[in-house]
Nucleic acid binder design. Structure first.
Lengths: 313, 313
DNA sequence: CCCTCGCGATATCTCCGGCATATCGTTGGG
DNA sequence: CCCAACGATATGCCGGAGATATCGCGAGGG
């Protein structure tokens, strides 16, 4: 049984007339008769009653036609859905990110992407940087936003673009003696009880305290940036975090720059170099449109990379 | 796009290998390549990524395949459903009947039909005989069970088989003076307040009272047989109805034969002579199996009728 | 580093079958 | 009783699906 048979049967049922149905199909009447006869032979039942002034479906024909119509509709949708999937308009995008990314670059990009690609199922997950990289390599994520270049096995299979840098700031309760100050010296910090993220403490924050990291070892650990702010607010210590933490709008905290200025590893976005997902491509093109600087960086990397992301526009 | 393309794409996705997929389809590898290429050209998107050691669907391919599989399933179901509809195993059967038919011939036939054709939607409706005949002719019913031959315009387009006769019986409250008697004389009845059905009073019951139908004109009218029994039970009068009314199992009523025995018009079943519904044919064959006497009658009528019911077995 | 093997693409031919043209059989309607 | 309309049948043609042979290419293995 071929789709042709379904189309012919549906047209015949619609026009109730071999000649007109054939005309509507762009063929002559005899082949329509032949094909319908062949269909009836294959199904094993008469699907149409031929009368002297037209054609009417039998009960078997009605049952057949119902299925035939949905089958044809599915076929049409197959093509449409494929095209939409290829344009990245449907599908799924799984993004893992560190908390601070949700403060600055992500909201704009995600909002725009949601609006331009409403039928893509977004799966968002807050993860620390190493976990995100691992999940990306395992194929559990499509995009990972973290801090610092991915390291370890497989990292060379990732394409990574910087999407923004920041420096270290301190956050304290409004009641804290530092609350009114614009800056705090790093040496002063070393004498305060600190609140830092697990991730930062174990990697990029260590150089800040030079040869003596005791301050870090006694620091309170928090998993994410909002917890750091919250702990600082209730005077658990001086919180340390990226400068985009200033975007947190709480009345009960104050921020101070750390002197000398201490640059944190850039925020970066990674994805698998072998990933051909059109949704990813669509996402990247939204990123490009939203942020020309990241976009041009992206273009460079993609141009350089051998197996670039599918038609990355 | 033809069903062939869908089958080929599905097979290719399943085997992830052109050669093996082609073998499973019973064709050689080159035509499979050609057809997949043609499909991709028509859809306008690459549906499969060819690697050096196999084939994997793209995102567009996955979207396409999902629709393709359901389309193919629908096509298979089309044939199956048509065959089942042709055997009368699916569809709808609308039966109109008078109340007394629900006492004797219908329960057995309907029960058996329900069991043998569980997926036929039965639509049952209690109607008086003339209304049933009209509904049948209007195409609102498939079968009408009533009393007395259908009359009026179009009646000759119906096939009608008798399915049982009965005679008149009286029903009275247990408290009624007649309650203990086996018979009641027709002349006695004429002096009693009566309870009869509208239908009966206006047609076949009139001869019972000879030239003076006054008894009927003052009779209480009821629409159906159970109401007659109920009114008799509460001593509203002497109920009159068909002898199968004896099948009503109420403790508060008693039945008496009417002397002389007064035959009522036969119960009969009618359907449109032009009706080709396989469900009707299936129903008739259940009737035949359930009741040989009616069956042979049916055979005679169908043999005699020019455009007999579709393949009435 | 080259060689070979495996896989998909391409080229060419064949032949089946879907389509067009012409004609027939049947059934209602005038 | 004839005619018009409709679907079925007969026949020839041609496109295209499929088979065979071959090529290009990339990945492993020696």
């Amino acid at each position: 049984m071929e789709a042709r048979h379904l189309r012919y049967a549906v047209a015949l049922a619609e026009h109730q007339h071999f000649g007109r149905a054939a005309a509507s199909l762009g063929i002559a009447q005899p082949p329509l008769s032949t094909q319908i006869a062949a269909l009836e032979r294959e199904v094993g039942e008469r699907l149409f009653d031929r009368t002297s002034r037209g054609v009417v479906p039998t009960a078997a024909g009605e049952a057949f036609l119902a299925r035939a119509r949905t089958a044809l509709a599915e076929m049409r949708l197959a093509g449409v859905d494929a095209a939409r999937a290829a344009r990245g308009e449907t599908g799924r995008l799984r993004i893992g990110f560190i908390g601070s990314a949700l403060l600055d670059p992500l909201p704009g990009v995600l909002g725009r992407f949601r609006r331009t690609h409403p039928e893509v199922r977004l799966s968002l997950q807050e993860l620390d940087s190493p976990t995100g990289t691992a999940a990306l390599l395992d194929g559990e994520l499509d995009v990972a936003v973290g801090r610092g270049s991915p390291r370890g096995a497989g990292a060379e299979d990732l394409i990574t673009v910087p999407i923004g840098g920041d420096h270290l700031v301190a956050v304290v309760s409004v009641a804290h003696p530092f609350a009114g100050r614009r800056t705090i010296d790093a040496e002063q910090l070393a004498r305060e009880p600190l609140v830092v993220s697990q991730d930062a403490a174990s990697s990029y924050l260590r150089p800040l305290f030079g040869p003596d990291p005791a301050a870090l070892e006694t620091a309170t650990m928090a998993r994410d940036i909002h917890t750091i702010a919250g702990l600082a607010a209730c005077s658990a210590g001086v919180g340390l975090g990226p400068s985009r933490m200033r975007l947190i709008t709480r009345k009960d905290i104050r921020f101070c720059d750390v002197t000398p200025r201490f640059r944190l590893p850039d925020l970066r976005m990674s994805f698998r170099a072998t990933d051909r997902s059109p949704v990813l491509a669509a996402y990247l093109s939204v990123v490009r449109a939203n942020c020309p600087k990241v976009g041009s960086h992206l273009d460079d990397l993609l141009a350089r990379h051998p197996s670039a992301v599918a038609g990355a526009l």
